[in-house]
């Protein structure tokens, strides 16, 4: 799926959406994870790394708002070797770095491929933001939007670009539902109504299944990407 931005002069890659690197090799599949603060994006990334790292070559880019905490959490948890985790600084505006001005993130993914590649999948985690934060198609091939039951069970009903258009909606922390009075059946019905057939996963990282469904979705995406 080359998008036609070919460069006649043969310089380094400049267009993020190009499926091939300058040497002609297919680049890694890039999957964005966005969602509100505290919904469990970093925990989901960590769980995905643990589930997938033995079968695919993985790397992670984090976009923290004002620290390197997400990257440091992943390093501390040792979900991947440190050279496979890069933090991008976003200047107080995480959605700008994943949507309006993706240059720093593109550099991070390209440098990871240069330095630790070949890579199959790069997970690009956004800093916690609001319900309108979505990734540019120039940066990622598919995006996961992570919300949680404790953030209010009306979030799926309210919709917004993340909930409505993300390739996968993850409703996290289902184990908390009885404690915060969230109605999972209602959340599921609202999400179905908003998403026009796009998939939704309900997960609790405290359960045995953990991020298994999301990992399966990533595997499917990778199979399509490499087909």
């Amino acid at each position: 799926m080359h998008l036609g931005h070919s460069l006649s002069h043969g310089g380094p890659e400049v267009v993020g959406a190009d499926a091939r690197r300058p040497d002609g090799v297919r680049r890694a599949l890039r999957i964005g994870l966005g969602g509100p603060v505290g919904s469990g994006k970093t925990a989901t990334v960590a769980a995905l790394c643990r589930l997938l790292r033995d079968e695919v070559s993985l790397a992670v880019v984090t976009n923290d708002i004002y620290t390197r905490e997400d990257a440091e959490f992943l390093l501390r948890e040792a979900v991947l070797p440190p050279e496979r985790i890069t933090a991008v600084e976003t200047g107080a505006c995480p959605h700008t770095a994943i949507r309006d001005d993706i240059s720093a993130n593109l550099e991070a993914v390209e440098d990871l491929e240069d330095e630790v590649g070949p890579l199959d999948v790069i997970l690009v985690e956004s800093g916690g933001d609001n319900l309108t934060a979505t990734f540019s198609k120039g940066l990622v091939d598919a995006q996961i939007f992570v919300i949680d039951v404790a953030g209010g069970d009306d979030i799926p009903r309210k919709g917004g670009p993340g909930v409505t258009t993300a390739d996968l909606l993850v409703v996290n922390k289902t184990d908390l539902a009885p404690h915060v009075g969230s109605d999972l059946a209602r959340m599921a019905a609202d999400a179905r109504a908003q998403r026009d057939g796009l998939p939704v996963v309900f997960q609790s990282l405290r359960s045995e299944e953990g991020a298994r469904d999301v990992a399966a979705w990533v595997r499917e995406r990778l199979a399509v990407w490499t087909a």
């Binding site: 931005h5 460069l7 006649s8 002069h9 043969g10 310089g11 380094p12 400049v14 267009v15 240059s103 720093a104 593109l106 550099e107």
Partner: peptide, 21 residues
């Protein structure tokens, strides 16, 4: 480097390509 990426798409030119190389 970031400006070069944006500039090469906005105004494709051999000089910008040479700079990137």
């Amino acid at each position: 480097r970031q400006l070069l990426r944006a500039g090469r798409v906005a105004w494709p030119s051999a000089e910008l390509d040479a700079l990137a190389e």
